[in-house]
């Protein structure tokens, strides 16, 4: 087999990678030891970052991509895919993460944006990207820039699932509303939500966004994870919810099992017992406007 006959970084490969994550739990980790715990619990991937969102929120300052040394050590520690966060618009952080061997880059509002006008042009990268979205227009703009996976923004680091619920319902509601529309009506919607017409038409036909859509931002318990799956998420990101819980090992394993048994309350009841308390959390409506992370990105 000649190497030049191998095609790398195609849309099919990038979106295909995201599809392999479906039905799984992706966990935020800050050290190789946490990554090992996540893998042992059954996570489908880990997300490497400097500090979990709850700590970023508490500590303030500028949040950047994780220390490349740490990302490299996490990559060496686990066999499951390693994702890592880059700042919105910071294409060089993304290039560094790609060079390190990260399997997916999260252009994330959890970090301090590097560009207040433009997101990264993700089409030129070999590795796939995941991006946050609050509504259909935002999701399709990110897909148009090359995102191979979407996640709800929710409100990271709060342990309050209400914003993730809002964003998931918002996206699904907008998709449902496209059903039965004429082409001219769909074009009008595309203009209103500032999304490319072709992607809105594709969404209307498929009755879902064209890439995998995960829940993220505030998921803290097995019940939260199951709730997001019931609302139609393809899988779940858990940030601070694992390693800010009383017993991370138990919480991680329970959330993995909850995602596989999301439609069975009897099993969920069993899974949710004896796992210790979840992260303390902070109610979204008590956060000052300037500290709301989901408003970053556009």
């Amino acid at each position: 087999m000649e190497l030049e006959k191998l095609r790398h970084g195609t849309e099919l490969i990038k979106r295909g990678f995201a599809k392999m994550q479906k039905g799984g739990v992706i966990m935020d980790v800050t050290t190789p030891e946490q990554a090992r715990i996540a893998e042992e619990a059954g996570a489908v991937a880990v997300m490497a970052l400097q500090a979990v969102p709850a700590d970023i929120r508490k500590e303030g300052g500028v949040a950047r991509m994780a220390d490349p040394q740490m990302v490299a050590e996490i990559i060496e520690t686990v066999t499951i895919p390693v994702m890592a966060k880059a700042r919105i618009g910071h294409f060089v952080e993304a290039e560094i993460l790609q060079a390190l061997g990260a399997d997916m880059v999260d252009e994330s509002e959890v970090l301090t944006p590097a560009d207040n006008k433009y997101h990264i042009d993700k089409t030129g990268f070999t590795v796939p990207f995941v991006c946050g979205a609050r509504n259909l227009g935002e999701a399709l703009r990110r897909i148009n820039e090359g995102a191979a996976m979407i996640r709800t923004k929710g409100e990271a680091g709060t342990g309050d699932v209400s914003e993730a619920v809002k964003h998931m319902k918002q996206i699904h509601g907008e998709v449902r509303a496209l059903k039965g529309m004429t082409k001219e009506e769909i074009i009008a919607v595309a203009r209103t939500i500032e999304a490319p017409i072709e992607l809105v038409i594709e969404t209307a036909e498929m009755q879902r966004i064209p890439v995998v859509n995960f829940a993220a931002g505030g998921v803290a318990t097995p019940a939260d994870a199951a709730l997001m799956m019931r609302l139609g998420a393809d899988g779940v990101f858990v940030g601070s919810g694992i390693f800010k819980a009383e017993n991370p090992e138990k919480m991680a394993k329970a959330i993995v099992e909850a995602v596989n048994n999301y439609d069975n309350p009897e099993v969920l009841a069993k899974i949710s017992r004896g796992i210790g308390s979840g992260m303390k959390g902070i109610s979204v409506d008590t956060i000052p406007e300037e500290q709301v992370l989901q408003n970053r990105g556009w």
Partner: peptide
Amino acid sequence: NAFGRQRDSFETELELPFLDTPYNAVFIR
């Protein structure tokens, strides 16, 4: 992960004995 990480994932035309023409095979990690 015989073929490396995600950045090494690839598509290629693969000959399979039960098919007349090559198959577009997608390899992901």
